[in-house]
């Protein structure tokens, strides 16, 4: 999906952004000269509304082309997936939603059944397999979207505010699932407004402001000693729950 322009190891999950610009309506909405995300642990993208976080995620995943510059995920052909803020589920059963992803992503026919069961178990949805996906609760729908995204065993998983519409319990369950996926070796890059979640899950923070990267620092450093004035101002308006 993303442009290949280098020679990293196959399967490598390093994300490299160079000279990236995205313009719309005559305005530069995003301008990132150089950004390299190469920590194996989750990276959280933070910033105020309109900073360009979701836009950056879509550009990295290759859903929209940049106006200038390049984005490379791993070696170019690295498997990647994305989960959206509002889960986009097909009008069919839970199992059929996952099976659809397995089919269109060319998972071998003989592996599909086994993989389906693994993913249902992982998402805690085994008992809901035959239920129409859109009748699940909000939390279950987002867990389904999450495990469905894992159908092609992505090396990189982009998450766009996946907990924003969930209640605390649903959010907690999804957080546990994200942690499990990250611990399994999938590189997680997540946009969130939940600073507590970012602090608990993230190892690295990328802070965006007005379409530019203002900080890329380890999580502890970001929350204890933010370097930029914008980040200090941003954090001062939020309560960070440990």
């Amino acid at each position: 999906m993303s442009e290949a322009c280098g020679a990293d190891r196959p399967g490598d999950a390093t994300i490299r952004v160079r000279g990236l610009k995205f313009r719309s309506g005559g305005q530069d909405l995003l301008e990132i000269a150089d950004l390299k995300i190469d920590t194996p642990a989750p990276t959280m993208i933070l910033g105020p509304n309109g900073a360009g976080k979701s836009l950056l995620l879509r550009l990295m995943h290759g859903l929209i082309p940049p106006s200038e510059g390049s984005v490379r995920v791993g070696s170019g052909g690295t498997a990647q997936a994305m989960v959206f803020q509002a889960p986009i589920l097909l009008r069919r059963s839970v199992a059929s939603n996952i099976m659809y992803a397995l089919k269109v992503q060319h998972v071998a026919r003989k592996r599909r059944e086994g993989r389906l069961n693994e993913l249902l178990e992982l998402g805690g949805l085994a008992r809901r397999a035959r239920q129409p996906a859109r009748t699940l609760s909000g939390g279950e729908q987002q867990r389904l979207a999450m495990v469905r995204a894992l159908a092609n065993e992505p090396k990189v998983l982009f998450l766009d505010e996946p907990t924003s519409s969930l209640d605390p319990h649903g959010s907690q369950q999804l957080e546990a699932l994200i942690a499990k996926v990250a611990a399994g070796g999938t590189k997680v890059v997540m946009v969130t407004h939940d600073l507590g979640l970012a602090s608990r899950l993230g190892e690295e923070i990328v802070f965006l402001h007005h379409g530019q990267v203002r900080e890329q620092t380890p999580e502890a450093e970001f929350f204890e000693r933010p370097r930029s004035q914008e980040a200090r101002s941003f954090l001062s308006r939020h309560l960070v729950l440990p």
Partner: peptide
């Protein structure tokens, strides 16, 4: 409604029609 999700799956253009 579905375009971003389908593109994320690599299902684009005419391939999306049956879905």
């Amino acid at each position: 409604e579905y375009s971003e999700q389908l593109r994320s799956f690599g299902v684009v253009g005419l391939r999306a029609v049956p879905t």
